[in-house]
Design a protein around this nucleic acid. Sequence first.
DNA 1: CTGCTAAACGGACTACGGTCCGAATGTTAT
DNA 2: ATAACATTCGGACCGTAGTCCGTTTAGCAG
Lengths: 212, 212
Amino acid sequence: MSLIPIRSGSPPGGETERSDAARNRELLLRAARELIEERGADGLTMDRLAERAGVGKGTVFRRFGSRAGLMMTLLSDSEAAFQGRFMFGPPPLGPGAPPLDRLGAFGAERIAYVMEFGELARAADASAHNRFDVPAAVLWHRHIEMLLRTAGVTADPWLMAMSLSSTLDPERLLHAVRVHHVTPERLAESWRELVTRVVSCPGGAAGPPERA
Amino acid sequence: MSLIPIRSGSPPGGETERSDAARNRELLLRAARELIEERGADGLTMDRLAERAGVGKGTVFRRFGSRAGLMMTLLSDSEAAFQGRFMFGPPPLGPGAPPLDRLGAFGAERIAYVMEFGELARAADASAHNRFDVPAAVLWHRHIEMLLRTAGVTADPWLMAMSLSSTLDPERLLHAVRVHHVTPERLAESWRELVTRVVSCPGGAAGPPERA
DNA sequence: CTGCTAAACGGACTACGGTCCGAATGTTAT
DNA sequence: ATAACATTCGGACCGTAGTCCGTTTAGCAG
C-alpha cells in the first residue's frame, strides 16, 4: 500500500539506515509537526526546525533535501492514502464507475484535500521549478489523462489533463477560498461542470487531430 | 492608450517626481534591461541591479517595491499593448467577433506573449501571494468571464474563468514547452479545443444553477 | 544667496534557504 | 576489542530578497 513515495526521507528505502540517522529523522519530523502546529506551515523555517530538533542544519537538508521535500514527507501519508483511494478504492473515485464520474469525484476529493492540508501542499509546491515533475503530480496527471482517454476524449489528452490539473492547483484554490470566499462546494460544482463539458462535447475547432 | 498601469514605477503618476528620482528610475530600468540581456531574468538580482545602476539598494526597493514589481514595470509596455489589442483592437481578438472566436484568439495571443516574455512573466509572478490580484491578472480574468457570459455560459462564469486562466499560467506553459517540448501551436490548439467545449456544451451535471 | 523641509538616498542589517567540508560516530571485518 | 571505513553530523558560510534609519539633497520661500 505504500505506492509511489512522495518524497522518501529514505525510511526503509534502499539500504539500511544508520541508527543515529533514524533517530534524527524521527526527531525532525516530530519537531516539524510541533512547529507547524504552533506557528503554521509558513512559520516553519529550516533553522528553527534544526534548533528545535536539536540537530545541525546540515542534517535537516541531508534528510529532506529542501524545505519542499520536508513538506512532501509530512504529507506523504495522506497523499499515499489519497492515491490509494483513486487508484484502488471504491467507486465513484476508484475503478468501476464511468470515467466522467471518476473525474468529478477526483476533483472533489482533491479540493477537500487542499482544504485540509492546503498550507502544507502550498509549501510543498513552493519555489520548485520542478513542481510539475514531482512523482505525485505526474501520477495525478496520468490518472486524469487516462480517464479522459477512457471517456473518449481524443483531442490531445495530455494537454487537456494539464489544463484540468492546473485548475486544481493548491495556490489557486486556496486563493479563491481565502480571498474571494468561494466555498469548497462551489469549487467542486464548477469542477464537475468543467469536466462534464470537456468530456461530453465533440471538439468543434478540431482541425487535423494528430500532429507530432 | 495607457490603460491600467501594471505596476507603476510612478513615472508621472500622482504628483510630480523629484529630478534625482526620475534620473535613478531611468538608470535602474536601463541597467535592468542590460542585465537581463546579459544573464537572463533569473540572473538579475537586486544587489547587482543596484550596483550596475550605481544607486543604493534601498533606492531599488523604493522605486519598485519588490523584484516582482520591477519585472512588472519592465513588462508594462508590452502588457499595455496586449491589453489594448484584446479590448479595443481588431477582431477576432478585439470586439466584433463571436465570443468563442475571441476566447480562442485570446489564448493564442497569451501563449505567444508567454513564449516571448516568459522569463519575465514568470519572475513577475514569482513569490507574490497576491499574484492573482495584480491588476493585469484581474483584467484578464474579467475579460474571460465577460466572454463566457456573452457566449451564454451560465454555470459560475467567475470560477470557469479562473480555471481557464490557470491553463494560461506562464509557469505551466513554459514548463510544457521547455521540459516536455510541446510546441506553442499545440498549446494554442488545445486551448481552442478547451474553450470550444466549455462554451458550446450544455452543462450536464448542473443542479440548481444559482446558489450564493 | 540662504535656510528650511519633505523627499529620496544608501548601505548596513535581518531572515531565510541552501551548500560545504572537517569532525564525529555507527557499523563491520578481523 | 580493535581498527578501518563509510556514513552522518554540525554549524560556519554564501547569495538573495527585503527592511530600517541616519544622512543627503532637491525644490522652494524669503
